[in-house]
């Protein structure tokens, strides 16, 4: 590395802190707003320092909900989001790892066509098939259900590719040693392949959990009942009515609550997160 003199280093520190300020400012405002009185905010008189209504606002948000637009407590929404995110993350990992296992460790007719069928779904995001997919879910009577929220999103070309790639790097001799040690397909998968995939699974889980928690378009389409809506949908409904009626402290508290789990995951499991992000983009 080429050493740099002090001046340039100060510049770098300053630029980075400006960047951090830009990145953090909107969230800071949200946190501040969630501790103040609605009347003050609605008048455009919001202070840039914390107000005194933190507990009151968060209590109402989590356990009661807004008085106008959506009366569902945000606690319920968070639970729905959590269930959906977990179903998506766990579901994707589970079905992807077993299909990758089949594709790498078995030779069977239609192996490659099946691989391509899974692979091409990369090019079919939910946005390009919105209404026909909606119709199928409706026909299967899965509207307003957890299954309807998660199942159509559970296929994953990315995860399948990732596991396939990882399995290809596992030495062949490991399977041969297992066979000599008397392990069949199930044993080998359970005793050897799965433990070896742990880090990959964890990294993938972090990414997929965030992806699942942040789903928006799909839940927007298929949930109609208030008690089934996720937090991302709830937050939009809170600001649908005219500006005067929007309870901004509650909206901002909901925004903070909606950010909390995924941001927590990114910060606490940063290593896994970075790894997952880089791996899934390969």
């Amino acid at each position: 590395m080429v050493e740099e003199e002090g001046f340039r280093r100060y510049v770098a520190h300053i630029i980075l802190w400006i960047g951090i300020a830009i990145v953090a400012f909107p969230v800071y405002i949200a946190i501040i707003a969630s501790t103040q009185e609605n009347a003050l905010i609605a008048n455009g008189q919001m202070s840039l320092l914390p107000g005194g209504h933190f507990f009151e606002v968060y209590y109402q948000t989590i356990f009661v909900g807004t008085t106008g637009s959506t009366r569902e407590p945000v606690g319920t929404m968070m639970l729905n989001s959590l269930v959906m995110a977990l179903m998506i993350a766990v579901g994707k990992i589970a079905i992807s790892i077993i299909s990758a296992y089949a594709i790498v460790y078995f030779r069977f007719p239609f192996r490659m066509p099946i691989f391509w069928l899974i692979f091409i779904t990369l090019m079919l995001p939910v946005e390009v098939r919105i209404y026909p997919t909606y119709k199928i879910v409706a026909d299967l009577h899965m509207l307003d259900s957890y299954a309807g929220l998660a199942l159509p999103l559970i296929a994953s070309a990315t995860a399948t590719l990732l596991f396939r790639q990882f399995f290809m790097t596992v030495p062949d001799e490991l399977l041969e040693a297992s066979r000599i040690d008397g392990a069949g397909p199930f044993r080998f998968f359970w005793d050897t392949l799965l433990p070896l995939s742990r880090t990959n699974m964890a990294a993938l889980f972090v990414i997929l959990f965030i992806l699942g928690w942040n789903q928006y378009l799909w839940p927007l389409l298929i949930t109609t009942r208030d008690d089934m809506q996720t937090i991302q949908i709830g937050i939009r409904k809170m600001i649908t009515t005219s500006d005067a009626l929007t309870e901004w402290p509650l909206v901002m508290a909901t925004a903070v609550l909606a950010m909390l789990p995924p941001v927590f995951v990114v910060v606490v499991m940063q290593k896994l997160f970075v790894r997952g992000l880089v791996e899934t983009e390969k």
Binding site: E173, L174, A177, I180, G182, L196
Partner: peptide
């Protein structure tokens, strides 16, 4: 006969130890 049922044991060039065990 399956490898497991041949009553043989093998030592591999790269050892093929189970890395997680």
């Amino acid at each position: 006969v399956e490898p497991a049922d041949r009553d043989i044991a093998m030592v591999f060039q790269n050892y093929a130890l189970y890395p997680h065990m």
